[in-house]
Simulated scan of single mutants.
Amino acid sequence: MILKKYIEVRASDAVIAKKHFVRVMLVVHSKNSGGSQLVVDWPKWASSANYFGVVMRVFGTEEELQGVKIDLDAEAMKATRVKGAKKTMIVSPVTDVPNEAKITWIFKRHRTPGRNKGASGVARLIRRAIARGEQPKEYTPKVVETHTLMLVSLSTNKIFPMDICRERPTHQDVIDSTPNSYGLGVPVPRF
């Protein structure tokens, strides 16, 4: 998948950035569930303590990104309705990806048990893999750098953690990839 257009979502500080990133992920999820192929990226991702940075990018076609921009601008306006509140989320216009941008990372949902999950957590992951039609993996403890966003299910309204990891993409990832419903799983250009 070749990414040619993007919008940038910039938060005013790192504390509220995660709240805005949750909103962006929910907008991307609702659009991708409707047939879009939006991809997300955190260019300021840092290895330290769950730090996504203050910038998030969304890649897609011009039309898809215009729809996302409208939804995110409405979200930004909701946050500034309080008297004297400052705009804490700025959404850039749709921009072209620079030609010299190189693919360096892929963001994926990390489903391996971590954070001291017990045997019941492993059993749950195996059941869910079977339900998705996948071959369940052998879950062995390994350290993977993950960051977590607390998302809200659009169908059940329950809060759940989404662990996201950043990896170097394989050759197969670059050749053949489509985003999942949250915009993860596609190599992103670095610029």
Rank of each mutant, 00 (worst) to 15 (best):
L3S: 03
K5N: 12
K5A: 02
E8S: 15
V9E: 04
R10M: 11
I16M: 11
A17P: 14
A17T: 12
K19C: 07
K19G: 08
F21Q: 03
F21E: 02
F21N: 07
L26G: 13
V27C: 13
V27R: 15
H29M: 13
S30F: 02
G34E: 10
S36K: 12
L38G: 05
V39S: 01
D41E: 09
W42R: 00
K44H: 04
W45F: 07
W45V: 06
S47R: 10
G53E: 00
V54Q: 03
T61G: 13
T61A: 07
T61C: 04
E63C: 05
G67M: 12
G67E: 12
G67I: 11
V68F: 08
K69D: 01
I70P: 02
I70V: 15
L72W: 06
A74L: 14
M77H: 13
K78Y: 07
R81N: 12
K86W: 08
K87P: 07
M89D: 05
T95L: 15
V97I: 11
V97Q: 06
V97T: 09
P98H: 11
P98E: 03
N99I: 03
E100A: 13
A101T: 09
W105E: 06
R111A: 05
R111Q: 09
G118C: 14
A119Y: 10
A119G: 13
A119I: 15
V122N: 07
A123C: 06
R124K: 14
L125S: 09
I126L: 09
A129N: 03
G133D: 00
E134N: 11
Q135D: 00
K137I: 00
K137N: 00
E138Q: 11
E138F: 09
T140C: 03
T140D: 01
P141W: 08
P141I: 08
V144M: 10
H147C: 11
T148Y: 06
L149P: 11
M150V: 14
I164T: 05
R166N: 00
R166D: 00
R168E: 04
P169G: 09
T170W: 08
D173G: 10
V174P: 04
I175L: 12
I175F: 04
D176G: 04
S177E: 01
P179Y: 01
N180A: 04
S181E: 04
S181T: 12
Y182I: 07
G183L: 01
L184I: 04
L184N: 02
G185E: 02
G185K: 12
P189A: 06
R190E: 06
F191P: 06
